[in-house]
Amino acid sequence: MQLTRAGFLVLLWLFVVAALRIVRSDLYAASGLKVGIPGFRRDKSGKARGKAPRQLVVTHGALAGTRISLDGRPIMIGRADDSTLVLDDDYASTRHARISLRGTDWYVEDLGSTNGTYLDRAKVTAPMRVPLGVPIRIGKTVIELRS
């Protein structure tokens, strides 16, 4: 009687622990968001990677704080539902801009938007290379690449 009582409570907490384990494993697993954990990144090539951009961070605007990890695939930005970064900005077009990897550098290009895309202060007319930490502005949203 006492045993079953204690046993059930233990089982109940085991459920909680199992759930928390899944939460923990998920912290480092793939999802829309990847948290960079310093010290846990393995560099198999042995040499320092230098300053390769690893994530795209929204610094201003409605989506501020959103991070998207860069895995070589192009990032589509715009109001369209299937964009990688969906903007609800009044100044954004349906398909506004694309940030894509060419060789080792990331380039931003404007996809014929109405209100334009700005790299730092300059308007993007042709594909431009995006250095680390330089803001890309689309309407009221500002994003930048970070390592």
Binding site: S25, Y28, S31, K34, F40, R42, A52, L70, R73
Partner: peptide, 29 residues
């Protein structure tokens, strides 16, 4: 939120040397 980003066709392999390819591997402590 967890669905992989759509609209991204797998890119050809030729883009970057292996050493330079960005990685999403994350170690668990």
């Amino acid at each position: 939120a967890r669905r992989p980003q759509t609209g991204s066709r797998p890119r050809p392999v030729q883009q970057a040397p292996i050493a330079e390819a960005s990685t999403v591997m994350v170690e668990r402590p």
